[in-house]
Design a binder for these strands. Sequence first.
DNA 1: CGAGGTCTTGAAGACGATCAACAAACGTGG
DNA 2: CCACGTTTGTTGATCGTCTTCAAGACCTCG
Lengths: 263, 263
Amino acid sequence: MLDVPWTRRASPVALRILQWSAELRQPLIPKLERRDHTLSAAEKAVLEQMSSRLTTFGPGEDMVCEGDRPTNSTLLLEGWASRYVTLADGRRQILALHISGDFVDLHSFPLKLMDHSVGAITACKVALVPHAVLEEITQSQPHLTRLLWLSTLIDAAILRQWLVGAGQRSAEENLAHRFCELYSRLQVTGLAGEGRFELPLTQEELGDTVGISAVHTNRVLQQLKGRGLVTWRNRVVTIENWTGLAELAGFDPTYLNLTDEPR
Amino acid sequence: MLDVPWTRRASPVALRILQWSAELRQPLIPKLERRDHTLSAAEKAVLEQMSSRLTTFGPGEDMVCEGDRPTNSTLLLEGWASRYVTLADGRRQILALHISGDFVDLHSFPLKLMDHSVGAITACKVALVPHAVLEEITQSQPHLTRLLWLSTLIDAAILRQWLVGAGQRSAEENLAHRFCELYSRLQVTGLAGEGRFELPLTQEELGDTVGISAVHTNRVLQQLKGRGLVTWRNRVVTIENWTGLAELAGFDPTYLNLTDEPR
DNA sequence: CGAGGTCTTGAAGACGATCAACAAACGTGG
DNA sequence: CCACGTTTGTTGATCGTCTTCAAGACCTCG
C-alpha cells in the first residue's frame, strides 16, 4: 500500500514534439459546436491555431503533477487520461476521465497552481496551448472565452454527478451511471459504436473512479452482467440493455449539456 | 423516506425586492481581491453596479431549482445556502455550501439549464445579476471575466476535494476536512473568529455533505470531540486543536486558491 | 405549554474493505 | 514463437464501517 505506482513524471516534453498531420482534426471544435453551433469561421481558425506544439505521453506517464504551475494547457487529441489525487497513504481518487477533445487542465489557466495531477491512461497525443494564447483569447474573443469557460463547467457538472454517486449511490448504481455517462460522452466524439465502446481502464482504475476497491469493482461488474445490463470484456463495454441500465443508475443526461444553445 | 422535505420553491421574487443599504458592501470584491489584488477602480465599479435587485429567501426556500433556466445569477450577500441534488427515492447529496460573497449559480450563465437546485439554509440576502450584464462583462471586461471564471473554478476545486472525501476518506477524516475547509473559507470573508465559526446546519445536512447518515454524523462528531479536535455546540464550531485536525484530515489549503496572483 | 424538529443512544444488519491465494492475460526478451 | 515474470482479474472468507430502525431526550418556536 505504501508503494505507490501512480505518479510517474513524463520525460521532457521538448524531446517529443510532433507535427500536426493532415488527418488529425481539432476535436475540440465538434465538442463545442455540439453545445453552440454558432462558431464563426474566424473563431474556428483561432481554435485551430491555438497550439503549435504536439506531444505524446506513454501509458502511466503524468502530463501535469500536483504542485505544478503549468504555462500551457493540454488538449487531448487521442487516448484516455485521468485527473487524480493521491493521499499520503497511497489511496487514490480519480477525479475525471478525459477523452479526445477534452481540455484536461484548462482550469490551470485561471487557477495557476495545480491541486491534482493528470496522467495518461493509454498512450496519448496532446496539443499544448500556451496560457499566453488563452489570455489573448480572453482579451479579444468573448464568445470563445465563454465556450472555454463552458467547457470547464461541463467538467464541473460531471464532477457533481460523481460526488452524488460517491455520496449517495450504491456501488452498483454508481458503476451503471458511469457506463451511461461514458457512453453518452463518447458518442459526441463518435468514439462509441452501437451500444458499445472501448474502455481501456483496469478494474482498479474504474474503482478509484467511484471510490470502491478493485475486488468489489469486480464483483459489482458481475452483478451488472448477471442482470443482463452490461458486459465488459477485452477492454470493450457492451451495453445489453440501455433502458435498464439508465433506470438502475437514475441517469439523466441533462448535466452533460448536450443541447445546442447560444452561449 | 418518500416524504421529501427539501425542495420548497420560494414565493415570487418580485414581491420582495429590497434596496441596497449603505452598510451592505459587495462581498464579492474582497473575495476576488484576495486572489488577485490588481482590480482596478473601474472594475470594482462594474462589480458594484452588476446588480440592481436585492432579494431575500427564508430558510429552506429554494433560490433556483433543478430544470430551471435562470436569467439571473445569484450573489449571496448574507446567510448560508447549499447546492444539492435529490434522487428519486429522496436521498439527497449536498454539492456545495455557500457563504457571503459566493456566486451560488454563476455557472448557470454559460450552462443555461440547472442540473441541480440551490436552497437557502438560513435566511439569505442575495443580489440578482442579470445574465445580460454578465454577457456584457464578457464582451468588455476580459480581466473581470477571468476572475468570474476563476470563481467557478474555485467551486470546482472544492468539489474535487469533496469527491476525494466521499470516495476515499473515512467519515471522521472527511468531517475533519470539512471543518478545516469551512474555517479557512470563512476567514477570508472575516466570518470566522479565533478558532471558531458559526455553522448553522443540522447534523443531517452536514451528513448529506459528506455522504453519511445523520446518526453516523452524530457519532463521528463525538469521536472528533473525544479526540479533543473540534466541538460543535449551539451552532458554533470550536476548533480545539487545529494542527491535529488538519493532520487527521490531510488538509492542504492549496485548492482554495488563497494566494494573490495575476489572473 | 405543547408540538415538531433535532439530537442521542442502542441494537441488528448490509455493504464494502481487506487479506490471501490462484488463474488468466499481457508483454518482454531470449 | 515460446518462456517467463508481472500485471490484472477472480474467488472465498473475515472484518469493520456505516446504515437502518427504533425509542427517548432535548430544544426551539409558536
